[in-house]
């Protein structure tokens, strides 16, 4: 499976493509999306520069960056020039509260090929930022996040490097929604459940409400560790969807006695048997268990695949 659909809304606002003056009359009520087309010559930085000159741009609250490409390809094309311009012109976007870098779909690029950049300059430039979303793990760096407002951090990848996971976990920010698409080793994922020891011990993000560790090859280990974790007692939403959860992880969660306060437990795209799904449902009525999968037995061994990798 791949990500086939572009965003229709972001941060509660309707996403509207901005290609030139006149596309958007009120920047405050929509989420402008800036992006390249393979057939055209404008870079992402060019499109941003155009938007920054548009009248009324200062009221922009949510901003989406889509495909970046140059000379008909995205290979070795970095979002860095656009990030640099965004940071250097930060005063033109004083209301910016939500950023998405990489609203790129499978019809535009493989998620595993998206070339990302270094976002470490964003945090100081936009002290009022509340949401930061990014798709693609290659060359992705977040730097040191010290931020007074950031409450939503979402990193979507087919394979997320441990360096990024550690930067995200080290964020000093009032995080309420923490979401990682961990992905597979084939595409650069090199984390394990031990990377989340401090998080699960309850040492990080005291205001955390939504924990989403999605698209993981070790969903069972995550579920088992979470079942023994005090963190489960204080979050409202646990999302282990798009991953490889089997009966082992499902049973550990069901038997934890800690699901009672969850407003939502999402395990969709899972490998859990109907009997174990029912055990989970008995432990929490707020279970979402759509899209059950069957392991692939191509060499006599069961293989479990995450939802999004390529």
């Amino acid at each position: 499976m791949t990500v086939s659909a572009n965003l229709e809304t972001f941060a509660g606002k309707h996403v509207v493509d901005f290609t030139g003056a006149g596309d958007i009359s009120d920047f405050g009520v929509v989420a402008p999306r800036l992006r390249c087309e393979y057939g055209e010559t404008r870079t992402l930085r060019d499109v941003l520069a155009t938007m920054l000159e548009a009248p009324g741009v200062g009221s922009t609250r949510a901003l989406v960056f889509g495909l970046w490409a140059e000379n008909g390809e995205s290979y070795e094309v970095s979002p860095a020039p656009a990030v640099e311009l965004l940071v250097s012109q930060k005063d033109k976007l004083p209301a910016l509260a939500a950023l998405f870098f990489g609203d790129i779909i499978s019809e535009e690029n493989e998620i595993s090929w998206i070339e990302q950049g270094d976002y470490s300059t964003i945090w100081n430039a936009f002290p009022q930022l509340e949401q930061f979303w990014v798709r693609g793990g290659n060359k992705l760096a977040l730097g040191t996040i010290r931020h007074r407002m950031l409450d939503t951090l979402v990193i979507q990848a087919g394979g997320l490097p441990g360096s990024v996971v550690r930067e995200a976990l080290a964020a000093e920010a009032p995080i309420r929604h923490f979401e990682l698409w961990l992905g597979t080793e084939d595409y650069g994922a090199d984390t394990s459940v031990t990377d989340f020891a401090d998080l699960f011990a309850g040492k990080l993000f005291p205001g955390l409400q939504t924990l989403a560790l999605r698209n993981s090859q070790y969903s069972d280990e995550l579920a088992t560790a979470l079942a023994a974790s005090p963190l489960l007692d204080r979050i409202r939403i646990l999302d282990l969807s798009m991953g490889t959860l089997t009966d082992a992880g499902a049973r550990a969660l069901a038997q934890s006695g800690r699901l009672g306060t969850l407003e939502k437990l999402d395990i969709s795209h899972h490998y859990v048997s109907p009997a174990a799904v029912e055990l989970l449902r008995a432990a929490t009525p707020n279970l979402i268990a759509d899209d059950p999968q069957q392991p692939d037995d191509w060499d006599g061994e069961p293989h479990y695949y995450v939802a999004v990798s390529e």
Partner: peptide, 13 residues
């Protein structure tokens, strides 16, 4: 021919 990016409806191409 060029593979042009198609719109998605209900999450599908």
């Amino acid at each position: 021919e060029a593979w042009v990016p198609k719109i998605a409806i209900a999450g599908r191409t």
